Computed example of a mutant assay.
Amino acid sequence: MDILTEALGSMRTAHPFSVRTEGRAPWGLRMPPVMGAGFHVVLYGTCWLLPLDRSRGGAVALSPGDVVFLRDGRGHVLADHPDTPPVPAEDCPIDGTPPVGMVTLGGDGARTSLLCGNYHLDQGRPHPLVRQLPELIHLETRHGRHPELAAAVRLLGAELEQPRIGSAGIVPALIDSLLLYILRAWLDTQPPATAAGWAAALGDSAVAPALAAIHGAPATAWTVEALADRSGLSRAAFARRFSTMVGEPPMAYLTRWRMTTAARLLRESDAPLTAVAAQTGYGSEYAFAKAFKREYGQAPGGYRREARAA
């Protein structure tokens, strides 16, 4: 069971949105907050990523091949130089055709080319794996770092520079896959000796099998004892270890994943409520509806209608 893919899939509410930004110095772009998570890929040239509140510091210099992931989609500035006044992104018209629009701005100086966008993730109920990520992840792919991520960036750059037959299908798929490459590369940077939380849990010999069991069969009547048997630890030792790494006790996480799975089924399928209840471990539609309303604040049918209308 690929828990990273499952966790991200449970939060996605739509396909990624992306725009290619072509700037020539001097240029600056003020990016508004977005629902979900933001990302930038530097395809050519250099630039700066700056917080909206400059007094807090946090300026990041970006070079070709750099990838930035903003966990909460916070507002920020991209510019050729920290002192360049930015223009609001909403004031810059988007040209071009799908799969990626184009924004062009600035003067006649040095060129920078970026792919900017956001992943539509449900931040109302973020999976704890995503919630534990740093607010900003900056990954460099030069000099042999993160070869798989670097390969994805090169492929994206090639398709955007010279679109060919099939590019309309290739580019969205690469952007969609980029999120997994980013998070996998970040997880790889966490030294085993210092890794904590989900970064440690995904590779832990006791916790990882329990997570895989929950994700692989959420309808099973799991108990702490049954999950502990898979870990090779006593019930108490397993419960402590799981809670420390995952951030909540095993049964609380089981309920979370069942409700997350149910919400995804309601959004993405026409399965009747009895089938959704059975697939998430509830013996009756009534018991399922009661649990779902407790977690989401509304009945499953209302949630489905609201999600379809969005």
Results as ranks from 00 to 15, higher is better:
residue 1 M to R: 03
residue 2 D to A: 03
residue 3 I to F: 08
residue 7 A to G: 12
residue 8 L to A: 02
residue 8 L to G: 00
residue 12 R to T: 13
residue 14 A to R: 09
residue 14 A to D: 14
residue 16 P to S: 03
residue 23 G to A: 12
residue 32 P to Q: 04
residue 33 P to N: 03
residue 34 V to L: 06
residue 37 A to W: 07
residue 37 A to G: 11
residue 39 F to Y: 14
residue 40 H to Q: 14
residue 40 H to I: 08
residue 41 V to L: 07
residue 49 L to V: 05
residue 50 L to P: 00
residue 50 L to K: 00
residue 53 D to L: 09
residue 54 R to T: 11
residue 55 S to A: 06
residue 57 G to I: 01
residue 57 G to F: 01
residue 58 G to E: 06
residue 60 V to S: 01
residue 64 P to A: 13
residue 67 V to Y: 05
residue 68 V to G: 06
residue 70 L to P: 00
residue 70 L to D: 15
residue 70 L to W: 10
residue 72 D to K: 04
residue 74 R to M: 11
residue 75 G to T: 02
residue 75 G to K: 00
residue 79 A to I: 10
residue 79 A to V: 10
residue 81 H to N: 15
residue 81 H to V: 06
residue 82 P to L: 06
residue 83 D to M: 10
residue 87 V to L: 09
residue 89 A to C: 02
residue 91 D to N: 12
residue 93 P to S: 02
residue 96 G to A: 08
residue 97 T to F: 09
residue 99 P to D: 11
residue 100 V to W: 08
residue 100 V to M: 10
residue 101 G to P: 08
residue 106 G to A: 06
residue 109 G to W: 01
residue 109 G to L: 01
residue 115 L to H: 05
residue 119 Y to Q: 01
residue 120 H to K: 02
residue 122 D to C: 05
residue 125 R to H: 14
residue 127 H to E: 13
residue 128 P to L: 04
residue 128 P to F: 05
residue 133 L to M: 12
residue 136 L to D: 00
residue 137 I to M: 10
residue 137 I to W: 08
residue 141 T to A: 10
residue 145 R to N: 11
residue 146 H to M: 00
residue 148 E to R: 14
residue 148 E to Q: 14
residue 149 L to N: 09
residue 150 A to W: 09
residue 151 A to D: 08
residue 158 A to F: 01
residue 163 P to L: 05
residue 166 G to S: 07
residue 168 A to S: 15
residue 169 G to T: 12
residue 172 P to W: 05
residue 173 A to Y: 07
residue 185 A to P: 04
residue 186 W to P: 00
residue 189 T to G: 07
residue 193 A to Y: 04
residue 195 A to R: 15
residue 198 W to H: 06
residue 199 A to E: 07
residue 200 A to P: 03
residue 202 L to E: 01
residue 202 L to R: 03
residue 202 L to M: 11
residue 204 D to W: 03
residue 205 S to M: 07
residue 206 A to W: 04
residue 209 P to A: 09
residue 210 A to W: 07
residue 211 L to D: 05
residue 212 A to T: 15
residue 213 A to T: 06
residue 215 H to N: 07
residue 218 P to R: 02
residue 220 T to F: 04
residue 224 V to K: 06
residue 226 A to Y: 01
residue 228 A to C: 13
residue 229 D to R: 10
residue 231 S to G: 15
residue 233 L to N: 04
residue 233 L to R: 11
residue 250 P to W: 06
residue 250 P to C: 13
residue 251 M to E: 12
residue 252 A to S: 15
residue 252 A to N: 08
residue 254 L to N: 02
residue 256 R to Q: 04
residue 257 W to V: 01
residue 257 W to I: 03
residue 258 R to E: 08
residue 259 M to F: 01
residue 263 A to M: 02
residue 264 R to N: 07
residue 266 L to A: 07
residue 268 E to P: 00
residue 273 L to A: 05
residue 275 A to K: 12
residue 276 V to L: 02
residue 285 E to Q: 08
residue 285 E to L: 00
residue 287 A to T: 11
residue 294 R to W: 00
residue 297 G to L: 14
residue 297 G to I: 14
residue 306 E to F: 01
